[in-house]
Computed example of a mutant assay.
Amino acid sequence: MATDEIVKLHGVNVLRCAPDGPPLDGERAALDLIGDAMGLGAELVAVPAERVDAEFFRLRSGVAGAVMQKFVNYRVRLAVVGDVSRHLDGSDALRDFVHETNQGGHIWILADLDALEDRLRAAG
């Protein structure tokens, strides 16, 4: 089992989560990640898309909103990193949500770690 690790990307301490860790499936899981990040001095949590519960991507479930609100409240940034195309297929609302979310500086849904590095480079 891989472990989460702290990496520095363009001056930002990032908690890069292992793909096989517990799922990001609600507020409790978000608080656990935020606590880990704060304890390790991370400003951003990068969670592999495969660790994000499918309900997160069903906007009506409210999971995405609850998770994102926790990250915003605690001032820890969140990046969901990986292929989410299966969730985007057939959902204009989710595509719009991802587009709008990625316009901000706090929550991103990105294709891969290279895209995260690019985003952090541009912000720095």
Rank of each mutant, 00 (worst) to 15 (best):
R95V: 01
Q103A: 10
E100S: 11
L78T: 02
K70M: 14
D92L: 15
G62I: 08
V76F: 07
E55R: 13
H99M: 13
Q69Y: 11
E50K: 04
R77N: 10
V76K: 00
D53G: 07
V98S: 05
A64H: 01
G65M: 07
N73Y: 12
E50F: 06
F97H: 00
H99G: 06
R60V: 12
S61V: 10
N73W: 09
V63S: 07
V52E: 12
R95L: 07
A79W: 02
D96G: 02
D92Y: 08
E100G: 07
R60K: 12
D83A: 11
R58L: 04
L94V: 00
L78I: 01
K70N: 10
D96A: 08
V80A: 08
A49M: 09
D53T: 02
A64D: 02
D89N: 09
N102V: 07
F71H: 01
V63Q: 05
D53A: 04
R60N: 13
G82T: 09
Q103C: 14
G82L: 09
R58Y: 03
H99L: 14
V84D: 04
L59S: 09
S85K: 08
K70C: 15
R95F: 05
H87W: 00
V63T: 13
V72Q: 13
R95S: 12
F57C: 11
F97I: 01
A49I: 06
A66H: 13
A64F: 01
